[in-house]
Amino acid sequence: METLPVAEVATLLNQPVSRVHQLVRDGQILSLRRDGEVVVPAAFFSPGEERAEVVKGLPGTITVLRDGGYSDEDILRWLFSVDDSLPGSPMSFLTEGRHREIKRRAQAMAF
């Protein structure tokens, strides 16, 4: 999984670093530590006309799984693990705009 440092995410979103930290606190995106640095998966963002945006359906999926008791680590693992019943991972489905199917699966897992 390709990751970006928080400062790069801020540049990508054309937002201050504090806003990226707020997105993490609010559960809109997830972060992790790699080699002591806070990073965010690059796949969480899609290009926009003026700036990148959080992939549609990702915040809702994170919320459903958190509400179901999943840790951020478990959510990241699930999002990026290849699922035999999908042609790829849940995250690849989200980036393709098929967020309803992924959210449905997340709801089934969480409850």
Score class of each variant (00 low, 15 high):
Met1Ile: 01
Thr3Ile: 12
Thr3Asp: 03
Thr3Arg: 06
Thr3Ala: 15
Thr3Val: 14
Leu4Pro: 14
Val6Tyr: 09
Val6Phe: 14
Ala7His: 12
Val9Pro: 03
Ala10Leu: 09
Thr11Ala: 15
Thr11Phe: 15
Asn14Val: 12
Asn14Thr: 12
Pro16Asn: 06
Ser18Glu: 15
Arg19Met: 11
Val20Gln: 12
Val20Ile: 05
Val20Asp: 06
Gln22Val: 05
Gln22Ile: 06
Val24Gln: 06
Val24Asp: 01
Val24Gly: 11
Gln28Val: 09
Gln28His: 13
Gln28Gly: 12
Gln28Arg: 13
Ile29Gly: 10
Ile29Asn: 13
Leu30Tyr: 06
Leu30Ala: 06
Ser31Cys: 10
Ser31His: 08
Leu32Tyr: 04
Arg33Leu: 03
Arg34Ala: 00
Asp35Arg: 00
Glu37Tyr: 03
Glu37Ile: 07
Val38Asn: 11
Pro41Gly: 12
Pro41Thr: 04
Ala42Met: 08
Ala43Val: 12
Phe44His: 05
Phe45Asp: 09
Pro47Thr: 10
Pro47Ala: 14
Gly48Ala: 02
Gly48Arg: 00
Glu49Asn: 05
Glu49Ala: 11
Glu49Gly: 09
Glu50Pro: 00
Ala52Arg: 03
Ala52Trp: 06
Glu53Gln: 13
Val54Glu: 11
Val54Asn: 13
Val55Thr: 07
Val55Pro: 07
Pro59Ala: 11
Pro59Glu: 10
Gly60Arg: 06
Gly60Met: 02
Gly60Cys: 02
Ile62Phe: 08
Ile62Asn: 01
Ile62Met: 05
Thr63Asp: 14
Thr63Arg: 14
Val64Arg: 05
Arg66Ile: 04
Arg66Gln: 10
Asp67Asn: 15
Asp67Ser: 13
Gly69Asn: 07
Tyr70Gln: 11
Tyr70Thr: 09
Ser71Asp: 14
Glu73Gln: 11
Glu73Val: 10
Asp74His: 15
Asp74Thr: 14
Asp74Gln: 15
Ile75Lys: 01
Trp78Gln: 13
Phe80Asp: 12
Phe80Met: 06
Ser81Asp: 08
Val82Ser: 14
Val82Asn: 12
Asp83Arg: 02
Ser85Met: 03
Leu86Asn: 03
Pro87Val: 04
Gly88Phe: 05
Gly88Tyr: 02
Ser89Phe: 00
Pro90Phe: 07
Met91Gln: 03
Thr95Lys: 07
Thr95Ile: 00
Glu96Leu: 08
Glu96Gly: 13
Gly97Cys: 11
Arg98Glu: 08
His99Ala: 10
Arg100Trp: 03
Glu101Cys: 01
Glu101Ser: 03
Ile102Phe: 00
Lys103Val: 03
Arg104Trp: 02
Arg104Tyr: 04
Ala106Tyr: 00
Ala106Cys: 01
Ala106Ile: 04
Ala106Phe: 01
Gln107Pro: 01
Gln107Asn: 02
Ala108Leu: 06
Ala110Ser: 13
Ala110Asn: 06
Ala110Tyr: 00
Phe111Lys: 07
